[in-house]
Structures are given as structure tokens and as C-alpha cells.
Design a protein around this nucleic acid. Structure first.
Length: 176
DNA sequence: CCCTGATTCGC
DNA sequence: GCGAATCAGG
């Protein structure tokens, strides 16, 4: 696959949004993060503004060369939810430790729309129920419509916020 | 060890 | 131009 206009555009967009090269690579598909970084530099949009933690590395190997390039300016703080971190909403005590999308007790809501939300598609109104192994390519979020004030859709909220008394007794845990 | 981005250089 | 390899760091 090559860098057609669409892909370059998406690259620019995502990069400017503060996503990491690997995240962008995953999103684009069929490219490695190296490819993304290389392209980013070629496009001249490196260093999304940032302090200057890395002054300038001449690289240990090979003959040294003058480095005309510069890339340091104050960086604007990345969006709150980046890096494969975060996303665990702090619920008082609901999810315990195993948020298991349990198909066990089939929810009446059969139409749990799984829109395959990636991290960047999450908004205030999208269900943040994690699906898959965090950190892997297939990992995504439910993406259904969340209820006001709640990070999950109705179906997943029911699983996450189980009534105290119910929580006590058995619930078979089943991961997706 | 996981991850970042940066740089070089053979292709 | 492309991107793997490599580097420097968190």
C-alpha cells in the first residue's frame, strides 16, 4: 500500500490530533510506525510542538554531519486520552477487577451496536466498554450510545453497575 | 520490557 | 520517496 492522498490526509489529521505514530499506523493499516514517522518527517510536520527534551542526537554511528533541522517549541499538551493508558473510568466500586462483557445473562438489549470504536472515536456519548485485549490491534470499544453521565451504554452499564446484593452472588465471568 | 519520536541510509 | 534499523529516551 502506498501513500495516496487520503492516507496522507488521515495521517496529517491524526498526527495533529496528538496520536502516536504507532496508533496512526494501526489506524491506517498496512504500515508500520516507522513508516508513519518517516512520512511525517518527509511531510515536514514533525515535532508537533514540544519542549526540547531531545536536543539533537547526531547518532552514534557514521560520519558526523551538521544538522540544520530544528524542532523545538512548546508542545501543547496532548488530549487527555492517549497512549494505551487510561480509559478506566473511576467508578466507585462497580467493576471490581473483571469487567467482563458477560453474555452469560443475555441482555434484553440484543442490539448492542458494536461500532468498533477506536480510541480516538470515543466521545462523551459513546460507550467506552472495552472489547478485546488492550494494546492489541483488535482492541476497540463498544461504541454504542452511552447514557447521559455514564460511560457505558445501557447494556454495559447493567454489567458494570450491578446492584450490590446481586454482585455478591455468582456471576460467571466471561471475557470476549 | 513496554512504549515514544528521531535519524540514517540502502533501496 | 520510502521505511527498516537503529538510536535515545520515558
Amino acid at each position: 500500500m502506498s501513500w495516496n492522498d487520503e492516507r496522507v490526509e488521515l495521517l496529517k489529521k491524526l498526527w495533529s490530533e496528538g496520536l502516536s505514530a504507532s496508533q496512526i499506523a494501526s489506524e491506517l493499516g498496512e504500515v508500520t510506525r516507522n513508516a508513519v514517522i518517516g512520512k511525517v518527517h518527509r511531510l515536514g510536520l514533525s515535532g508537533r510542538t514540544k519542549a526540547a527534551p531531545a536536543p539533537a542526537r547526531p547518532r552514534a554511528k557514521g560520519p558526523e554531519q551538521p544538522q540544520p533541522q530544528r524542532r523545538d517549541q512548546p508542545r501543547p499538551q496532548r488530549p487527555a486520552t492517549i497512549g494505551n493508558t487510561a480509559l478506566a473510568p473511576e467508578l466507585e466500586d462497580a467493576p471490581e477487577e473483571a469487567p467482563a462483557p458477560a453474555p452469560a445473562v443475555a441482555p434484553d438489549n440484543v442490539v448492542t451496536m458494536t461500532q468498533r470504536c477506536t480510541i480516538m472515536n470515543l466521545t462523551e456519548s459513546t460507550c467506552r466498554w472495552p472489547i478485546g485485549e488492550p494494546g492489541t490491534e483488535s482492541f476497540h470499544f463498544c461504541g454504542g450510545r452511552s447514557n447521559p453521565g455514564m460511560p457505558y451504554c445501557t447494556t454495559h452499564a447493567r454489567i458494570a453497575y450491578q446492584p450490590v446484593q446481586d454482585r455478591r452472588r455468582d456471576r460467571r465471568l466471561a471475557y470476549l
